[in-house]
Design a protein around this nucleic acid. Structure first.
Lengths: 368, 368
DNA sequence: CTGAAAGCGCTTACAG
DNA sequence: CTGAAAGCGCTTACAG
């Protein structure tokens, strides 16, 4: 170390800031000197390699422990070529759901990575420059073993047909032809259970407010249709409106469009996302349409909004933490050259709150 | 997006997974062989050291560029003891504001760190174990040059009287006796401008809903009092209620307490945080108290809620991005042994929306 | 202005 | 079961 060297040459040690890589750091050599055992043996003992006496191993471990030995990653990296780090790229700009998603996903990843000795290096997408350097080139510069990337449902994606020469896991969205692995939630099933829940309460005219196509919201729509099909309810295009953007205003206007259409009003409504639902509730409130008495609502995301509306929003929960966890496991397997599924689809669950609360015994025909 | 340039390189298709630290990586030695120049000289040229001919330097740089040379950090680290990485610790559990804060702060840090060749390593607080291993010990294991830590206003803190032997910057909150540097927002001034704005609109009976003591919310309260003082308005304890916790329910109940008190009702209300304000608006709505006609509202945080309420919430904005940026600059200075202020206090601004919109010309006395 | 050499801390193929 | 030695890629004090 820099400072250690200074000390040895008799140069006065600066007092102010001491780096974390402090001079006193115990090395294998220190242990070797104290134990009278070779570096080779110590390295083996500490890394749990087979083929050595238990007694030697224990003795070494005890001393390492007492001396507070911490392996210097740089030395190991240089020697093995293994970096033991995973890169995680966060979007370069702020959009509200992003932050929450990233933090939970990161925690999920860290819980897997840290015990395995991996660290998580975070980079901003904007680092790669406005000239759109290729991800491959960027990844080389990063010096990580593999990359993870979270994609929000409305992120634009330019797919590629070239498989990547390193492990890449995309979280939250599937992008075809990328040669990546994926961790996604079962959006379609989420749409299904959110709709089925309304059907089970006796609703037949169930509307849906969705979002842009080619996003998770489209898959939720598929789930909605599947649930109707399963219940033998005919799909009515007049009951579906797509919000221009996934915002509360988008939800408000979509709801407006829906309720200003002539014909029978829906008695229930499945919103493709909580943030849309927020606008929907606002519209209904403004127009004195009661929830759940006049319209029952289910939604998707189980975000903080679900708990903050009145009544609480019944919403589909997907675990961002689990996404991170599975992504990390996938990456570790891929780095070790083990087989890993091309895609992991995580289960979802419906969190039932007041917005869909309706006397289930009331026959459906009394409601129209 | 990253993806755009993706297919453009004629990268040969690898048969299986190749690590990012691929064997083909160009090293200084490769450059040395091609150029017929020593490693020493190449290293110097690439790192911009003085005392060499421009011609040699340019020749070296050109070849390095052409060969796509990327310095291997592990080698440099081993040689210099400098790690070029900053640790950032995120909370181990989920609380809503956290995620947003972390993501913005990270972006702010990355914008400073990446160009300087530093990487950001993220760790979960839970990694350090429930036994509250000392931060010092934990930091040693991390192998980073310095640490940053974001503290939410309601995070518990275990203070320490031992100064730390490495650079530590605390973001968003000041903790005494820790030997750390701080980046905080000017919470007090925020409280002041949020209150002064109401005073300028002619209000005299201005209530405040605050939060726990020893948090940022307490400093916002100080700002509120300072603004009243400056305007010659007597502080009335009956107009201040502290929410039990910083949640919308906390805000709701605090508002309930406030409005059920006998005596003159306030005509304006400064909420210590948007999430409290959310509950306040709910209470007022439920009781047919109009905003801003009956009560004008200002708040703090300028979170997504501020835009999602009706009317929009006038709220104090602090830049989390700027906090990250300043924290990173501070850390870099400290690592280099340069002087850095013990604390940087960032400015705040009031974002005016409908909730405080009131005809300013109406004399105050007509309002009671 | 340039280079030869030592060394950072670790791992591992090879030899005993 | 254990050790001596080479080497990973870089930087820098020292010598020319």
């Amino acid at each position: 170390m820099l400072w250690a060297a200074w000390g040895k040459r008799g140069v006065p040690k600066p007092k102010k800031i001491v780096k974390l890589s402090s001079p006193g750091e115990t090395t294998l050599r220190d242990l070797s000197e104290e134990l009278g055992v070779s570096l080779t043996t110590i390295s083996r003992a500490l890394r749990g390699k087979q083929g050595m006496s238990d007694e030697t191993r224990e003795r070494i471990k005890a001393v390492a422990e007492r001396r507070g030995y911490i392996s210097n990653k740089a030395g190991a990296t240089l020697s093995t070529g293994r970096l033991f780090s995973i890169g995680y790229i966060i979007p370069g700009e702020d959009r509200w759901p992003t932050g929450l998603l990233q933090a939970d996903v990161m925690r999920g990843m860290l819980n897997e990575l840290t015990p395995q000795g991996y660290s998580l290096h975070v980079y901003s997408e904007s680092y790669f420059g406005t000239d759109r350097t290729s991800l491959l080139e960027a990844a080389r510069r990063l010096r990580v073993d593999a990359l993870a990337l979270t994609i929000e449902h409305d992120d634009p994606i330019v797919p590629s047909s070239h498989p990547l020469p390193f492990p890449l896991v995309l979280i939250n969205r599937r992008v075809e032809g990328l040669g990546a692995n994926f961790v996604v939630a079962d959006e379609e099933r989420g749409g299904m259970i959110a709709t089925a829940h309304l059907i089970e309460s006796g609703h037949r005219r169930i509307a849906h407010i969705g979002g842009p196509s080619r996003t998770a919201l489209e898959r939720r729509l598929h789930g909605y249709r599947a649930a109707l099909d399963a219940a033998g309810i005919a799909f009515d295009p007049a009951l579906v409106v797509h919000a221009d953007d996934v915002s509360w205003r988008g939800g408000y206007h979509a709801c407006e469009t829906l309720f200003e259409r002539s014909g029978d009003r829906p008695t229930a409504l499945f919103c493709g996302s909580d943030i849309l639902a927020f606008g929907v509730l606002k519209y209904l409130e403004n127009h004195a349409i009661r929830v759940p008495q006049d319209v029952a609502i289910t939604s998707f995301d189980d975000s903080m909004f679900a708990e903050m509306t009145e009544p609480g929003l019944t919403s589909v929960r997907k675990s961002r933490h689990a996404m991170g966890r599975e992504a990390a496991r996938m990456l570790l397997a891929l780095i070790d050259g083990k087989a890993a599924p091309a895609q992991i689809m995580l289960p979802v669950e419906l969190i039932v709150r007041g917005s869909s609360d309706r006397p289930a015994r009331l026959p459906a025909r009394l409601r129209h």
